[in-house]
Amino acid sequence: MLRLPAFTFHQPETIEEAVALLATDPAHTRVVAGGTDLFPNMKRRHQGAESVVSLRGIDALHGITESKDGSVIIGATTTLDAITRDEQIQQKYPSLVTAVASISSPVLRNAGTIGGNLCLDTRCTYYNQNEEWRRSIDYCMKEQGDICWVAPSSPRCWAVSSGDSVPMLCALGAEITLVSSEGERTLPLAELFRDDGIDYLSKRPDEILTTIRIPSPSGARTGFWKLRRRGSIDFGVLSVAVSGWCNGNTTDRIEIWLGSVGSTPVRCTASIAALIGKPLDDETIAAAAALARKSAGANPLGNTDFVPQWRGKMIEKYVEAVLREVAGLPRQRMVPRHGSEKWPS
């Protein structure tokens, strides 16, 4: 049986206690909420910790509340399952429910949390392996080694940002709050991420992600599609999230985000620019979708499931499919969305 290495364990009941515990030795302490990312990583020994601080016992960190301005605030340790079942979220952000419901499997979502999904360690098939396996390749630069085996001449790590809720929450314009013993700060979710497989978060080790605030959708039309091999369990190898605001026939504002195509969530800026002020129709959508493939940061490499060239081509197909769904156009092709959903006949 693969087991956890030994650590000391803390179960604080308040945020203050938690950040104080974290402040003593942030380099060797890790916070855990659901355990569905950290514990596998610790068992495989590519993430280590002498001390683990559980956020589960902190009541202030879970739950979903609505603000007066119509925005919704989600506590970071709210389980993914609780989010998919929440009526407010279902009503206001149906595509967020789709995205969150696509994370791993139902049994994992009963433990996994939204904060954990946002802070999910970047993934790579050269890295997410047991200690003994990584010894066989002499490790990689993300942990103990010198080389990125996906792109050996590259100076950087190309591990993949794989949180399926990330592109959707970015498209919805979410903000997050980080708390440390020195205080708290609020920033747009998109600013949490960095385009580097190792240093992939702007969150400091002594900070705890406490809340996610999603602005009122105010009439946005949204869509989310994810590509993966199986209808459950698998991480995405491409996810597309769209949130669009139309005025009559034309697009006032639109956000198109990709997940799992690089070390950071990718905003399709050229596609967005191509659609502003235009109607969402067959032609504009096809043109915007073609631009998506070239978005900065969208760089599928050979460190996930499926061959990278094909994943790259799928960006266009999937962006087109989601935009068509948002525009209310009929599906052109029979791309399945999720494993258990039947294709249209």
Partner: peptide, 8 residues
């Protein structure tokens, strides 16, 4: 239902 392998 939860995964007892990931639950302390």
């Amino acid at each position: 239902p939860v995964l007892s392998c990931l639950e302390l």
